[in-house]
Nucleic acid binder design. Structure first.
Lengths: 119, 119
DNA sequence: CGGTATCCCACGGGATACTG
DNA sequence: CAGTATCCCGTGGGATACCG
């Protein structure tokens, strides 16, 4: 990827967005938080996301936190509890994700028509 | 990335879309074709995209073609001429790209407020 | 003009094991 | 419970050189 800070941020907002929400899991995690509308714990996110590995889940969440998309709250309890929720700017991704989702459906239909059946 | 065929296509349309339009250059190329509204030649796309390498440009275009997003037309002339244009499903990405672009702008503003100035 | 070929690197992501 | 640590691999993308 072209240097995210120099090119994406200075030049093209599309690339900025793709950098921030890029990586296959991030939209999935954001979607999970949108769906729940209430803060989710680490293990809840892991369950909802599917087959994500702990390492990838942690890294994705930390990047989303660093980019201001999610808010991470640690409760000093035993056993430990950590909750994740969307920030305002994170919430504002909802319509985009919905649009991408619809387009993905459309694409799938048109694609399966013009080529041999998938799988 | 989780196997694009098995998981993305079978499961989640968001991942399907991200697979098809993923990679940092694809949206940029699609955007260029949307902006022009007339077929573009290879060299025109290269100029509009910015600093893309030939190899990456060719590969991206071929993938977009394989996924039914762009149509590639070769004219048997000397010197050779190849034109690229969006398919219908490719055109339908326009609102999504616009949405992503707006979000990228928004994010940039909110982000530069909550952290130290970029660059 | 519109590509290929070859080589190389960075990084997202998985697997496994371990911990405060 | 919510992670870290370590290792490994596939792929996107750049650099350079060459071709019909």
């Amino acid at each position: 990827m072209r240097d995210l800070t120099a090119r994406a941020i200075a030049g093209c907002p599309v690339e900025t967005a793709m950098t921030v929400i890029g990586g296959c899991w991030k939209l999935t995690l954001i979607q999970a938080l949108i769906d729940s509308s209430v803060p989710l714990r680490y293990s809840e996110l892991r369950d909802k996301a599917g087959e994500i590995s702990d390492r990838t889940l942690t890294r994705s969440l930390r990047e989303l936190e660093a980019d201001g998309i999610v808010k991470r709250t640690v409760y000093a309890e035993v056993p430990p509890r950590v909750e994740y929720e969307l920030t305002d700017i994170g919430q504002s991704l909802a319509p985009i994700i919905a649009a991408i989702q619809n387009w993905g459906d459309e694409w799938l239909h048109s694609y399966s028509k013009l080529s041999s059946p998938l799988i």
